[in-house]
Design a binder for these strands. Structure first.
Lengths: 231, 231
DNA sequence: TAACGTTATGTGTTATAACACTTTATCGAA
DNA sequence: TTCGATAAAGTGTTATAACACATAACGTTA
């Protein structure tokens, strides 16, 4: 048999997967407000698909925890209570600390330089008050590190957690992004990374998670004290 | 208005949710073998529902990581490679350690006595070689503890992790359950729990996770050395 | 005007049909 | 018998229709 090595035909993703991805983007992009009800038909119509893939995508997002069921089986963007933020923060510290520690040991030089570059781009974007860009760079920086741990299940779980706070991060980033402390935290992480200091990187990441969570919590208390009562 | 206090009508769960639950039970019950292909129509027919809820339930299970996509969008019960087991074990230690530590501080006396009772029932079932019962008691014991941490998101994540190894635990339990060491581990956890020794409980749980993972790994290497190569 | 019943609209749920693609079975030719 | 083409069955994907239930709008009545 003549063995010509050909690239595989790329199979376009299913509509369900595309809808789910669009919804994730909208969620971290701040398109929805916390507490917004999301209906199947609205999603289907706005993306030009039938009910079937829209509904399936929504139930996937719900399974991932990015959406939640409200009364009467309606779906909504979950509001973030103080308690829930505290819980997510604890889990993030455990999981992202683990990922960071292992990544420090496994990342190769090329990846490290790319991550450091993402961090510099983040600093520039923040100073230029380009918040959309900063959020993207921030994601690149963190997940550039996490991908280094070579634990795909772990990475997927961390992504799920980020999705839950994504809406809020978007809401408060302007105030938070300008804080000098945030940039310092990233610098510390970048230094530990370059030195391959696993414990140091873990500490820096954990500190940054805690720091930004405190910032977000303060913002929550200020802007919507009723978050204390919400589920 | 005559205010007669009536119980609320119980709304039966959707077919989708019921199918998903049945599948989870089958997965931890050892009905499927790792690598088995699962088709939408087979699930639909065997449970007497149409394609729609069957398909939706399957995609939820896939989102939870309990099922995986194989070639050509087929769904299958994910085989457990040594690497993947190692990854899951690391995550479990991080997450279940966190849950146990907080639970030791928050559980009340009534819950603790119920957990200890579940452990005693587990020991009895193991000695009587009632493996089905032992697996159930084991679940009760662990999640009795974890529920005490009052972190619903965390608990759901841990449940997802258990689902991934469920099939295998079922396969190897007879050999594992009889190990005296396993019972000792549980006893140590129960003692720490009664003493409200958070650090001790975390250590006991972490040790038991590591111990049973080693046991499972040895079994994997013995029974199916090809697991090393599988994804 | 306020409370209530009625109708209309919106919404989640489920079944079914149609389509494209893959896998298996079948069968004829070398 | 074996290889390869063709037919058949299987399978995932998607759209649509029908149904039950919830909510909103509307008008009627006291």
């Amino acid at each position: 048999m003549a063995v010509h090595r050909l690239d595989l035909i790329e199979r376009s993703e299913t509509l369900t997967a595309q809808v789910a991805e669009k919804l994730r983007e909208a969620l971290i992009g701040g398109v929805f407000a916390p507490g917004d009800k999301i209906t199947i038909r609205a999603v289907a119509k706005s993306l030009g698909v039938s009910l079937t893939p829209a509904r399936e995508a929504l139930s996937i997002l719900a399974a991932e925890g990015a959406l939640e069921f409200g009364a009467n089986r309606t779906l909504m963007v979950p509001p973030l209570s103080i308690d829930r933020l505290a819980e997510i923060t604890r889990i993030r510290i455990a999981l992202e600390g683990l990922a960071a520690e292992r990544a420090a040991r496994l990342l190769d030089e090329r990846e490290i330089t790319r991550i450091v570059a993402a961090n510099e781009a983040l600093t520039r974007a923040t100073k230029a008050e380009d918040f959309k860009g900063a959020i993207l760079r921030n994601h690149e920086f963190y997940f550039g590190i996490y991908r280094g741990c070579r634990m795909p299940t772990l990475i997927k779980m961390i992504e799920g957690l980020w999705l839950r706070t994504g809406t809020y991060v978007n809401l408060i980033y302007p105030a938070f992004g300008l804080a000098r402390k945030g940039i310092e935290n990233h610098e510390r992480a970048a230094r530990a990374l370059k030195a391959r200091d696993a414990e140091g990187l873990r500490a820096a990441i954990e500190f940054d998670i805690r720091y930004s969570a405190e910032h977000l919590e303060a913002e929550l208390r200020a802007k919507q004290p009723e978050a204390l009562k919400l589920a």
